[in-house]
Design a protein around this nucleic acid. Structure first.
Lengths: 186, 186
DNA sequence: CGCATCTGTTCGTCAAACCGAACAGACGGA
DNA sequence: TCCGTCTGTTCGGTTTGACGAACAGATGCG
Protein backbone atom coordinates (compact mmCIF):
# COMPACT_ATOMS: atom_id res chain seq x y z
CA UNK A 1 0.00 0.00 0.00
CA UNK A 2 2.93 2.23 -0.68
CA UNK A 3 2.58 5.45 -2.59
CA UNK A 4 3.28 5.72 -6.25
CA UNK A 5 6.91 6.62 -6.88
CA UNK A 6 6.15 8.40 -10.14
CA UNK A 7 5.93 12.15 -9.84
CA UNK A 8 2.74 13.05 -11.64
CA UNK A 9 4.22 15.82 -13.70
CA UNK A 10 2.80 14.46 -16.92
CA UNK A 11 -0.22 12.90 -15.29
CA UNK A 12 -1.52 16.29 -14.28
CA UNK A 13 -1.33 17.48 -17.83
CA UNK A 14 -3.48 14.72 -19.28
CA UNK A 15 -5.82 14.74 -16.28
CA UNK A 16 -6.49 18.44 -16.65
CA UNK A 17 -7.17 18.06 -20.32
CA UNK A 18 -9.38 15.05 -19.82
CA UNK A 19 -11.49 16.60 -17.08
CA UNK A 20 -11.77 19.86 -18.93
CA UNK A 21 -13.03 18.04 -21.99
CA UNK A 22 -15.49 16.20 -19.82
CA UNK A 23 -16.98 19.42 -18.53
CA UNK A 24 -16.83 20.85 -22.02
CA UNK A 25 -15.35 24.26 -21.38
CA UNK A 26 -12.43 26.07 -22.94
CA UNK A 27 -9.04 26.58 -21.42
CA UNK A 28 -9.77 30.26 -21.05
CA UNK A 29 -13.06 29.62 -19.31
CA UNK A 30 -11.56 27.12 -16.90
CA UNK A 31 -8.79 29.53 -16.00
CA UNK A 32 -11.37 32.22 -15.34
CA UNK A 33 -13.49 29.97 -13.13
CA UNK A 34 -10.48 28.76 -11.19
CA UNK A 35 -9.16 32.27 -10.80
CA UNK A 36 -5.78 31.57 -12.30
CA UNK A 37 -3.99 32.97 -15.32
CA UNK A 38 -4.71 31.09 -18.46
CA UNK A 39 -1.04 31.14 -19.27
CA UNK A 40 -0.48 29.07 -16.16
CA UNK A 41 -3.13 26.61 -17.18
CA UNK A 42 -1.78 26.43 -20.68
CA UNK A 43 1.62 25.45 -19.39
CA UNK A 44 0.18 22.92 -17.01
CA UNK A 45 -1.74 21.21 -19.77
CA UNK A 46 1.42 21.23 -21.82
CA UNK A 47 3.11 19.17 -19.18
CA UNK A 48 5.60 21.79 -18.08
CA UNK A 49 5.65 23.24 -14.62
CA UNK A 50 5.04 21.99 -11.12
CA UNK A 51 1.86 23.60 -9.83
CA UNK A 52 1.34 24.61 -6.26
CA UNK A 53 -1.31 22.90 -4.22
CA UNK A 54 -3.44 26.01 -4.17
CA UNK A 55 -3.39 26.28 -7.93
CA UNK A 56 -4.26 22.66 -8.52
CA UNK A 57 -6.90 22.80 -5.84
CA UNK A 58 -8.61 25.72 -7.49
CA UNK A 59 -8.67 23.76 -10.73
CA UNK A 60 -10.16 20.76 -9.02
CA UNK A 61 -12.93 22.89 -7.55
CA UNK A 62 -13.62 24.55 -10.87
CA UNK A 63 -13.77 21.19 -12.58
CA UNK A 64 -15.97 19.69 -9.90
CA UNK A 65 -13.62 16.80 -9.26
CA UNK A 66 -11.69 15.86 -6.15
CA UNK A 67 -8.20 17.11 -5.97
CA UNK A 68 -6.57 13.72 -6.11
CA UNK A 69 -8.20 12.96 -9.41
CA UNK A 70 -5.82 15.40 -11.05
CA UNK A 71 -2.62 14.01 -9.66
CA UNK A 72 -2.98 10.25 -9.22
CA UNK A 73 -1.55 8.45 -12.28
CA UNK A 74 -3.99 6.51 -14.40
CA UNK A 75 -9.47 -4.97 -18.57
CA UNK A 76 -12.73 -6.60 -18.85
CA UNK A 77 -15.23 -8.81 -20.76
CA UNK A 78 -18.96 -8.41 -21.08
CA UNK A 79 -20.67 -9.83 -18.05
CA UNK A 80 -24.36 -9.66 -17.30
CA UNK A 81 -26.03 -10.39 -14.01
CA UNK A 82 -29.79 -10.48 -14.39
CA UNK A 83 -31.97 -9.28 -11.57
CA UNK A 84 -32.18 -12.19 -9.18
CA UNK A 85 -28.97 -13.78 -10.39
CA UNK A 86 -25.60 -13.51 -8.80
CA UNK A 87 -24.30 -14.69 -5.45
CA UNK A 88 -26.52 -13.40 -2.70
CA UNK A 89 -25.78 -12.40 0.81
CA UNK A 90 -29.00 -12.80 2.70
CA UNK A 91 -29.51 -10.94 5.91
CA UNK A 92 -30.81 -13.03 8.79
CA UNK A 93 -32.21 -10.00 10.57
CA UNK A 94 -34.41 -8.47 7.94
CA UNK A 95 -36.01 -9.05 4.60
CA UNK A 96 -33.02 -7.99 2.58
CA UNK A 97 -30.72 -9.53 0.04
CA UNK A 98 -27.43 -8.07 -1.03
CA UNK A 99 -26.04 -9.22 -4.33
CA UNK A 100 -22.35 -8.80 -4.94
CA UNK A 101 -22.01 -7.55 -8.48
CA UNK A 102 -18.36 -6.55 -8.75
CA UNK A 103 -15.78 -7.03 -6.05
CA UNK A 104 -12.88 -4.63 -5.95
CA UNK A 105 -9.28 -5.55 -6.65
CA UNK A 106 -6.18 -4.69 -4.72
CA UNK A 107 -5.70 -1.19 -6.03
CA UNK A 108 -9.35 -0.49 -6.58
CA UNK A 109 -11.30 -1.19 -3.44
CA UNK A 110 -14.80 -1.03 -4.78
CA UNK A 111 -17.79 -3.22 -4.11
CA UNK A 112 -21.00 -2.71 -6.03
CA UNK A 113 -24.10 -4.21 -4.45
CA UNK A 114 -27.68 -4.47 -5.52
CA UNK A 115 -29.86 -4.11 -2.43
CA UNK A 116 -33.35 -5.53 -2.33
CA UNK A 117 -35.49 -4.72 0.69
CA UNK A 118 -39.06 -5.21 1.81
CA UNK A 119 -40.84 -2.90 4.22
CA UNK A 120 -41.56 -3.69 7.83
CA UNK A 121 -38.07 -4.36 9.04
CA UNK A 122 -35.05 -2.24 9.70
CA UNK A 123 -31.57 -3.23 8.70
CA UNK A 124 -28.96 -1.63 10.94
CA UNK A 125 -25.22 -1.65 10.35
CA UNK A 126 -22.96 -0.92 13.26
CA UNK A 127 -19.98 0.37 11.36
CA UNK A 128 -17.60 -0.76 8.69
CA UNK A 129 -13.91 -0.09 8.31
CA UNK A 130 -12.78 3.45 9.18
CA UNK A 131 -13.16 6.06 6.48
CA UNK A 132 -15.37 3.82 4.38
CA UNK A 133 -18.03 5.60 2.39
CA UNK A 134 -21.34 4.39 1.09
CA UNK A 135 -23.15 5.56 -2.02
CA UNK A 136 -26.75 4.64 -2.64
CA UNK A 137 -29.05 5.17 -5.59
CA UNK A 138 -32.61 3.98 -5.30
CA UNK A 139 -34.01 2.13 -8.29
CA UNK A 140 -37.57 1.57 -7.15
CA UNK A 141 -39.71 1.99 -4.07
CA UNK A 142 -38.85 4.20 -1.14
CA UNK A 143 -35.91 3.92 1.21
CA UNK A 144 -35.17 5.54 4.55
CA UNK A 145 -31.45 5.40 5.02
CA UNK A 146 -28.49 7.15 6.60
CA UNK A 147 -26.59 7.50 9.86
CA UNK A 148 -28.59 7.55 13.09
CA UNK A 149 -29.92 11.06 13.48
CA UNK A 150 -29.44 11.97 9.84
CA UNK A 151 -31.94 9.72 8.13
CA UNK A 152 -33.22 10.73 4.71
CA UNK A 153 -36.02 9.38 2.60
CA UNK A 154 -35.22 8.44 -0.96
CA UNK A 155 -37.32 7.68 -4.00
CA UNK A 156 -36.35 6.27 -7.40
CA UNK A 157 -33.38 8.18 -8.77
CA UNK A 158 -32.52 9.77 -5.46
CA UNK A 159 -28.93 9.52 -4.33
CA UNK A 160 -27.25 9.82 -0.98
CA UNK A 161 -23.73 9.32 0.33
CA UNK A 162 -22.66 9.09 3.94
CA UNK A 163 -19.82 7.75 6.08
CA UNK A 164 -19.88 3.99 6.46
CA UNK A 165 -17.87 3.90 9.67
CA UNK A 166 -20.71 5.19 11.81
CA UNK A 167 -23.88 3.34 12.80
CA UNK A 168 -26.50 3.66 10.10
CA UNK A 169 -29.64 1.95 8.90
CA UNK A 170 -31.68 0.94 5.88
CA UNK A 171 -35.45 0.71 5.91
CA UNK A 172 -37.73 0.10 2.97
CA UNK A 173 -40.98 2.06 2.98
CA UNK A 174 -42.57 0.46 -0.05
CA UNK A 175 -42.72 -3.04 -1.52
CA UNK A 176 -40.26 -3.92 -4.24
CA UNK A 177 -37.65 -1.44 -3.10
CA UNK A 178 -34.20 -1.91 -4.55
CA UNK A 179 -31.10 0.25 -4.65
CA UNK A 180 -27.55 0.32 -5.91
CA UNK A 181 -24.95 0.45 -3.17
CA UNK A 182 -21.37 1.34 -3.92
CA UNK A 183 -19.18 0.79 -0.89
CA UNK A 184 -15.69 2.21 -0.71
CA UNK A 185 -13.04 0.74 1.52
CA UNK A 186 -9.87 2.75 2.17
CA UNK B 1 -21.46 19.92 -5.79
CA UNK B 2 -18.58 17.58 -5.14
CA UNK B 3 -15.27 19.34 -4.64
CA UNK B 4 -14.39 20.94 -1.35
CA UNK B 5 -14.03 24.71 -1.59
CA UNK B 6 -11.62 24.91 1.34
CA UNK B 7 -7.99 25.20 0.32
CA UNK B 8 -6.20 22.57 2.37
CA UNK B 9 -3.46 24.87 3.54
CA UNK B 10 -4.03 23.97 7.17
CA UNK B 11 -5.11 20.44 6.41
CA UNK B 12 -1.72 19.67 4.97
CA UNK B 13 -0.01 20.90 8.10
CA UNK B 14 -1.88 18.65 10.49
CA UNK B 15 -1.79 15.74 8.06
CA UNK B 16 1.96 15.93 7.73
CA UNK B 17 2.42 16.08 11.46
CA UNK B 18 -0.01 13.25 12.05
CA UNK B 19 1.52 10.93 9.49
CA UNK B 20 5.02 11.71 10.59
CA UNK B 21 4.15 10.88 14.17
CA UNK B 22 2.60 7.67 12.96
CA UNK B 23 5.81 6.62 11.26
CA UNK B 24 7.74 7.82 14.27
CA UNK B 25 10.53 9.76 12.62
CA UNK B 26 11.83 13.25 13.14
CA UNK B 27 11.23 16.22 10.94
CA UNK B 28 14.85 16.17 9.89
CA UNK B 29 14.71 12.51 9.01
CA UNK B 30 11.55 12.89 6.98
CA UNK B 31 13.02 15.80 5.07
CA UNK B 32 16.09 13.72 4.32
CA UNK B 33 14.07 10.74 3.09
CA UNK B 34 11.85 12.92 0.97
CA UNK B 35 14.82 14.77 -0.45
CA UNK B 36 13.59 18.20 0.52
CA UNK B 37 15.02 20.87 2.76
CA UNK B 38 13.98 20.55 6.34
CA UNK B 39 13.29 24.23 6.42
CA UNK B 40 10.63 23.67 3.81
CA UNK B 41 9.09 20.88 5.79
CA UNK B 42 9.18 22.94 8.95
CA UNK B 43 7.21 25.69 7.32
CA UNK B 44 4.72 23.25 5.87
CA UNK B 45 4.02 21.70 9.24
CA UNK B 46 3.62 25.21 10.63
CA UNK B 47 0.80 25.81 8.22
CA UNK B 48 2.55 28.46 6.21
CA UNK B 49 3.41 28.06 2.58
CA UNK B 50 1.78 26.49 -0.39
CA UNK B 51 3.81 23.47 -1.45
CA UNK B 52 4.28 22.40 -5.00
CA UNK B 53 2.90 19.09 -6.12
CA UNK B 54 6.37 17.60 -6.44
CA UNK B 55 7.26 18.51 -2.91
CA UNK B 56 4.09 17.14 -1.41
CA UNK B 57 4.35 14.06 -3.55
CA UNK B 58 7.83 13.33 -2.28
CA UNK B 59 6.54 13.62 1.27
CA UNK B 60 3.73 11.22 0.54
CA UNK B 61 6.16 8.67 -0.83
CA UNK B 62 8.50 9.07 2.12
CA UNK B 63 5.61 8.65 4.53
CA UNK B 64 4.24 5.67 2.67
CA UNK B 65 0.79 7.15 2.36
CA UNK B 66 -1.21 7.95 -0.73
CA UNK B 67 -0.85 11.50 -1.85
CA UNK B 68 -4.45 12.42 -1.25
CA UNK B 69 -4.29 11.58 2.43
CA UNK B 70 -2.22 14.69 2.89
CA UNK B 71 -4.65 17.03 1.21
CA UNK B 72 -8.14 15.60 1.54
CA UNK B 73 -10.09 16.93 4.50
CA UNK B 74 -10.99 14.20 7.00
CA UNK B 75 -14.36 12.68 6.24
CA UNK B 76 -17.44 12.68 4.13
CA UNK B 77 -20.63 14.33 5.33
CA UNK B 78 -24.17 13.42 4.51
CA UNK B 79 -24.97 14.66 1.06
CA UNK B 80 -28.23 14.20 -0.83
CA UNK B 81 -28.78 14.77 -4.51
CA UNK B 82 -32.46 14.49 -5.37
CA UNK B 83 -33.48 13.10 -8.72
CA UNK B 84 -33.12 15.96 -11.13
CA UNK B 85 -30.62 17.81 -9.01
CA UNK B 86 -26.88 17.86 -9.43
CA UNK B 87 -24.63 19.17 -12.16
CA UNK B 88 -25.75 17.81 -15.46
CA UNK B 89 -23.85 16.97 -18.57
CA UNK B 90 -26.37 17.05 -21.34
CA UNK B 91 -25.72 15.24 -24.57
CA UNK B 92 -26.32 17.20 -27.72
CA UNK B 93 -26.80 14.07 -29.80
CA UNK B 94 -29.55 12.29 -27.93
CA UNK B 95 -32.20 12.68 -25.29
CA UNK B 96 -29.88 11.91 -22.39
CA UNK B 97 -28.68 13.65 -19.28
CA UNK B 98 -25.77 12.45 -17.20
CA UNK B 99 -25.63 13.69 -13.65
CA UNK B 100 -22.31 13.55 -11.84
CA UNK B 101 -23.09 12.27 -8.37
CA UNK B 102 -19.73 11.45 -6.83
CA UNK B 103 -16.27 11.66 -8.26
CA UNK B 104 -13.73 9.11 -7.12
CA UNK B 105 -11.02 9.61 -4.54
CA UNK B 106 -7.36 8.73 -4.40
CA UNK B 107 -7.07 5.04 -5.04
CA UNK B 108 -10.59 4.77 -6.25
CA UNK B 109 -11.13 6.59 -9.49
CA UNK B 110 -14.81 6.22 -9.89
CA UNK B 111 -17.55 8.48 -11.10
CA UNK B 112 -21.15 7.63 -10.32
CA UNK B 113 -23.64 8.94 -12.83
CA UNK B 114 -27.37 8.86 -12.99
CA UNK B 115 -28.35 8.36 -16.62
CA UNK B 116 -31.74 9.44 -17.85
CA UNK B 117 -32.68 8.49 -21.39
CA UNK B 118 -35.73 8.65 -23.61
CA UNK B 119 -36.37 6.19 -26.42
CA UNK B 120 -35.99 7.00 -30.09
CA UNK B 121 -32.41 8.08 -30.12
CA UNK B 122 -29.11 6.31 -29.74
CA UNK B 123 -26.27 7.68 -27.70
CA UNK B 124 -22.94 6.40 -28.97
CA UNK B 125 -19.61 6.82 -27.22
CA UNK B 126 -16.46 6.35 -29.22
CA UNK B 127 -14.12 5.46 -26.39
CA UNK B 128 -12.93 6.81 -23.11
CA UNK B 129 -9.53 6.51 -21.52
CA UNK B 130 -7.77 3.14 -21.99
CA UNK B 131 -8.71 0.38 -19.56
CA UNK B 132 -11.71 2.29 -18.31
CA UNK B 133 -14.64 0.14 -17.24
CA UNK B 134 -18.33 0.92 -17.10
CA UNK B 135 -20.87 -0.55 -14.71
CA UNK B 136 -24.56 -0.04 -15.29
CA UNK B 137 -27.61 -0.88 -13.21
CA UNK B 138 -30.99 -0.03 -14.63
CA UNK B 139 -33.46 1.60 -12.28
CA UNK B 140 -36.49 1.87 -14.51
CA UNK B 141 -37.47 1.28 -18.11
CA UNK B 142 -35.49 -0.79 -20.55
CA UNK B 143 -32.00 -0.15 -21.86
CA UNK B 144 -30.06 -1.59 -24.76
CA UNK B 145 -26.42 -1.03 -24.03
CA UNK B 146 -22.93 -2.39 -24.55
CA UNK B 147 -20.07 -2.45 -27.01
CA UNK B 148 -20.90 -2.65 -30.70
CA UNK B 149 -21.65 -6.27 -31.46
CA UNK B 150 -22.27 -7.22 -27.86
CA UNK B 151 -25.41 -5.29 -27.07
CA UNK B 152 -27.60 -6.50 -24.23
CA UNK B 153 -31.05 -5.52 -23.11
CA UNK B 154 -31.54 -4.60 -19.51
CA UNK B 155 -34.58 -4.14 -17.30
CA UNK B 156 -34.89 -2.74 -13.79
CA UNK B 157 -32.34 -4.33 -11.50
CA UNK B 158 -30.30 -5.78 -14.33
CA UNK B 159 -26.58 -5.14 -14.25
CA UNK B 160 -23.89 -5.15 -16.89
CA UNK B 161 -20.22 -4.25 -17.05
CA UNK B 162 -18.11 -3.74 -20.13
CA UNK B 163 -14.92 -2.02 -21.28
CA UNK B 164 -15.27 1.69 -21.70
CA UNK B 165 -12.36 2.11 -24.07
CA UNK B 166 -14.15 0.54 -27.00
CA UNK B 167 -17.01 2.04 -29.01
CA UNK B 168 -20.30 1.38 -27.28
CA UNK B 169 -23.84 2.70 -27.19
CA UNK B 170 -26.84 3.42 -24.99
CA UNK B 171 -30.40 3.20 -26.23
CA UNK B 172 -33.54 3.51 -24.18
CA UNK B 173 -36.39 1.19 -25.19
CA UNK B 174 -39.03 2.58 -22.88
CA UNK B 175 -40.03 6.01 -21.62
CA UNK B 176 -38.67 7.12 -18.27
CA UNK B 177 -35.62 4.93 -18.45
CA UNK B 178 -32.88 5.72 -15.96
CA UNK B 179 -29.81 3.85 -14.83
CA UNK B 180 -26.87 4.10 -12.51
CA UNK B 181 -23.55 4.28 -14.30
CA UNK B 182 -20.33 3.71 -12.42
CA UNK B 183 -17.38 4.60 -14.61
CA UNK B 184 -13.87 3.65 -13.63
CA UNK B 185 -10.85 5.47 -14.93
CA UNK B 186 -7.43 3.82 -14.54
C1' DC C 1 31.49 20.67 32.94
C1' DG C 2 32.60 20.32 27.88
C1' DC C 3 31.43 18.54 23.70
C1' DA C 4 28.67 16.04 20.44
C1' DT C 5 24.40 15.32 18.30
C1' DC C 6 20.08 15.44 17.97
C1' DT C 7 15.60 18.36 17.91
C1' DG C 8 13.05 22.14 15.05
C1' DT C 9 13.34 27.12 13.87
C1' DT C 10 14.64 31.47 11.18
C1' DC C 11 17.17 34.03 7.57
C1' DG C 12 19.17 35.33 2.83
C1' DT C 13 19.57 33.82 -1.86
C1' DC C 14 17.99 31.84 -6.18
C1' DA C 15 15.13 29.49 -9.27
C1' DA C 16 10.56 29.14 -10.71
C1' DA C 17 5.52 29.47 -10.39
C1' DC C 18 2.28 32.79 -11.35
C1' DC C 19 0.40 36.75 -13.60
C1' DG C 20 -0.99 39.98 -17.35
C1' DA C 21 -0.55 41.45 -21.90
C1' DA C 22 0.41 40.76 -26.43
C1' DC C 23 0.16 37.38 -29.93
C1' DA C 24 -1.32 34.25 -34.17
C1' DG C 25 -4.99 31.33 -35.84
C1' DA C 26 -10.02 29.81 -36.40
C1' DC C 27 -14.65 30.85 -36.90
C1' DG C 28 -18.98 33.57 -37.74
C1' DG C 29 -21.69 37.58 -39.05
C1' DA C 30 -22.43 42.11 -41.36
C1' DT D 1 -13.54 41.40 -47.05
C1' DC D 2 -13.45 43.33 -42.62
C1' DC D 3 -14.43 43.18 -37.97
C1' DG D 4 -15.38 41.00 -33.55
C1' DT D 5 -14.68 37.16 -30.61
C1' DC D 6 -13.39 33.10 -29.57
C1' DT D 7 -9.45 29.49 -29.38
C1' DG D 8 -4.70 28.53 -27.09
C1' DT D 9 0.09 30.08 -27.18
C1' DT D 10 4.41 32.82 -25.90
C1' DC D 11 6.83 36.68 -23.66
C1' DG D 12 8.66 40.01 -19.64
C1' DG D 13 7.89 41.21 -14.71
C1' DT D 14 6.64 40.18 -10.09
C1' DT D 15 5.84 37.10 -6.37
C1' DT D 16 7.10 33.11 -3.79
C1' DG D 17 8.40 28.41 -2.88
C1' DA D 18 12.56 25.75 -2.02
C1' DC D 19 17.16 25.54 -0.61
C1' DG D 20 21.18 25.69 2.57
C1' DA D 21 23.37 27.63 6.42
C1' DA D 22 23.27 29.49 10.74
C1' DC D 23 20.62 29.40 14.88
C1' DA D 24 18.81 28.18 19.88
C1' DG D 25 17.23 24.43 22.80
C1' DA D 26 17.30 19.50 24.53
C1' DT D 27 19.47 15.33 25.47
C1' DG D 28 23.36 12.16 26.21
C1' DC D 29 28.06 10.73 27.29
C1' DG D 30 32.99 10.94 28.79
Amino acid sequence: MSADPTPPLATIAVALRRERDRVGISLTELARRAGIAKSTLSQLESGVGNPSVETLWALGVALGVPFSRLVEPPAAAVRVVRAGDGPRIRSEHADLTATLLAAGTAHIRRDVYLLELEPGTVRTAESHTPRSVEHIVVGAGRLRVGPEGDLVELGPGDYVTFPGDAPHRYEALAPGTFAVLVMEHP
